[in-house]
Design a protein around this nucleic acid. Structure first.
Lengths: 229, 229
DNA sequence: GAATACATTGTTGTGCACATCATCGCGCAG
DNA sequence: CTGCGCGATGATGTGCACAACAATGTATTC
């Protein structure tokens, strides 16, 4: 083999976590678009294991609503219709606001540094936009915002719902139903506004700004979609 | 074949669902108390399958936070300390109120009949209290209340958090740290009050009553717990 | 007598062969 | 040409044997 220096003794749990995160990222960044069929055998081979441990990951992802396995047919990345997506968004709005009200914690030095880096990345994105990098940036920013609450269950639930919805929104961007340039621009403004609120220590205001942007982002997507879907 | 009348052709999915619901119920009704070790082999034998399909169920339950498997040691029912439980309760309060605000739907005839039956059961419980039957009643009532919102994601999240917390609260009842008679009495009142609110069509009020009772129930439990835990 | 090394035991994790299922395409009858 | 039956194909689901691992008890050595 070649230099497997990074390959420290992987416990079963670590390997599971790695595969889980990797596949979830691929789904959420649209490497696997909704409707895509995943091959258990191919994935198992890629991760260097047999189907058994991989299936454990797939079962978990199915529980999170990102996959659906059908006996004799295949394992597919789920898609959702607009009505259920609307319900999820309505819930996400409320949860976003709760982030500022339930166990809020001011950003420590490390988190603040992360926010500044995220602001830089978003500004750079304006000059050189790219769908996938934008998706990654969006996700990183969302996860950073979650660190503003110490309420672990709220973080888990919010994260879960984010992963369920963001890929559908991304699909709209990719399909050019909504303009990437505009989205990047709006996102940049969101980051700046939220950072301004954080700077004066108003976590609730930051949460409200986020809530507003989630709402508007969904509206833009809904308007950009013709009739069906 | 012989007369397998009740055994309608069980697809893999149905069998999975049955085992999942059954084990989850056992955990939430404290048939398996927190800390209990579950035997994969014994459970598989009980359900008449091999370990493989059963493990799928366990993986799902682990994802929901009800179980935890440790390689070479065993599969254990999770327990939670008071601080994390408090966070979950704070979130549940908000979600309960959201039930009355996000996509509320007035009870149809069937749901209303269910509510009346639940009221009867709660009144009967006063005369003849029993921990496990009370636990089941409490769960049934909670699930009925969830049907007052059409917001599917909200229902899923609320249900999930309920299953995570109710068994800890039940543990307190079983340990006589809080009085079963009192709890039944309070519950009876909650049911009556909520039904009164529903009768005049005030779903938001019903949700607020539920929120209040969740809050008070947690306070009673917290006060009833000595110092540690 | 105490501490340590080691074998034993019982558990979850893994790999593989096969069963079961849904789909597609071919062949045949009408 | 069309419709139907049916076998081939490839996917997920299942069962079993074994590997990896942790805990416990025991023997051995200092």
């Amino acid at each position: 083999m070649n230099f497997e220096i990074t390959d420290v003794t992987q416990s079963a749990r670590d390997r599971f976590e790695r595969m889980y995160q990797e596949i979830r990222n691929r789904i959420c960044l649209l490497d696997y678009a909704p409707g895509t069929r995943l091959s258990e055998e191919a994935l198992a081979a890629e991760f260097g294991t047999s189907r058994t441990p991989l299936r454990r990951v797939l079962v978990r992802l199915e529980g999170e609503g990102l996959l659906q396995s059908v006996h004799g047919v295949g394992t597919f990345v789920t898609d959702v219709e607009i009505e259920e997506l609307a319900q999820t968004y309505r819930l996400r709005l409320e949860l976003a606001e709760l982030t500022g009200k339930l166990d809020p914690v001011a950003p420590d030095e490390e988190l603040w540094a992360d926010f500044l880096r995220l602001a830089d990345r978003s500004h750079a994105m304006v000059a050189d936009p790219d769908p996938r990098r934008f998706a990654q940036l969006n996700m990183d920013f969302f996860l950073a915002l979650l660190r503003l609450t110490a309420n672990e269950p709220l973080r888990e639930v919010s994260e879960r719902l984010y992963f369920q919805t963001t890929r559908i929104w991304l699909k709209s961007v990719f399909a050019s139903r909504i303009d990437l340039i505009d989205e990047v621009d709006v996102f940049c403004r969101e980051v700046d506004d939220i950072l301004r609120a954080l700077k004066i220590g108003d976590l609730h205001a930051a949460a409200l700004i986020q809530r507003a942007h989630i709402s508007m982002s969904f509206e833009r997507m809904r308007k950009g979609i013709p009739a069906q879907m």
